[in-house]
Write a protein that binds this DNA or RNA. Structure first.
Length: 194
DNA sequence: GGCACGATTGCT
DNA sequence: GCAATCGTGCCT
């Protein structure tokens, strides 16, 4: 069987999708399918948890400190992967949004696992499950390596849950903004508080 | 060159 | 509660 046959059917999201307002893109990403292909082997999962980061004014965003070697990709064109190493042991995957020169991105925090993907709640484990590391930093989100597909699934009107972003308590007032978007279910990195 | 710390995770 | 583990950003 070929890689084509096991790819999810649908349209690939391009720069015109990611260039829009970052909060809007984050919400619209819920339910879309993240696809990773390694050596012709396809793995995918449905996006159920993402967070918006809007620099340089957003103190929680890496781009808060401006243009540095690490944040260069965030300043680049939309529809590219921003991957960084965290705590020396995990990678985190982001999608760059907004036009070139506007350093914003969306952190991918959890997937509903599809074929070839084990349970992977949390940005570090998700990257491990999909074989995503910093060598993919800066690559465009196009087939076959790494891309996002709209397969027609649409969350129900009340399915989207918003809340404060995880792990950014240092960011002062920015930490409280409801810029984490989830589809409630068993695959979130942290369940909604009762 | 040195040093503090992190958009995490799992074990005590 | 805390250690693992290392690149990044800021300081000297």
């Amino acid at each position: 069987m070929t890689a084509e046959l096991s790819r999810p059917a649908g349209s690939v999201l391009g720069p015109d999708f990611f260039v829009r307002d970052t909060l809007r893109v984050a919400e619209d990403l819920l339910g879309k399918v993240l696809v990773r292909e390694v050596d012709g082997h396809v793995r995918w999962g449905r996006l159920v948890e993402v967070e918006a980061y809007r620099g340089p004014e957003d103190r929680a965003a890496h781009s808060w400190r401006g243009l540095t070697p690490r944040t260069r990709v965030m300043y680049g064109p939309p529809g590219h992967a921003y991957v960084y190493l965290i705590y020396g042991m995990y990678n985190c995957l982001n999608f760059v949004t907004r036009p070139e020169g506007c350093p914003e991105a969306i952190l991918v925090r959890a997937l509903e696992p599809g074929p070839g993907v084990g349970r992977c709640s949390g940005p570090g484990l998700l990257c491990r499950a999909l074989d995503i590391d910093r060598w993919l930093n800066g690559v465009p989100l196009v087939p076959p390596q790494l891309y996002v597909v709209d397969d027609g699934f649409r969350p129900g009107p009340d399915a989207v849950v918003r809340g404060p972003r995880i792990g950014v308590a240092y960011a002062g007032e920015w930490a409280a903004l409801p810029w984490r978007f989830c589809l409630d279910g068993p695959h979130l990195s942290r369940r909604r508080r009762s």
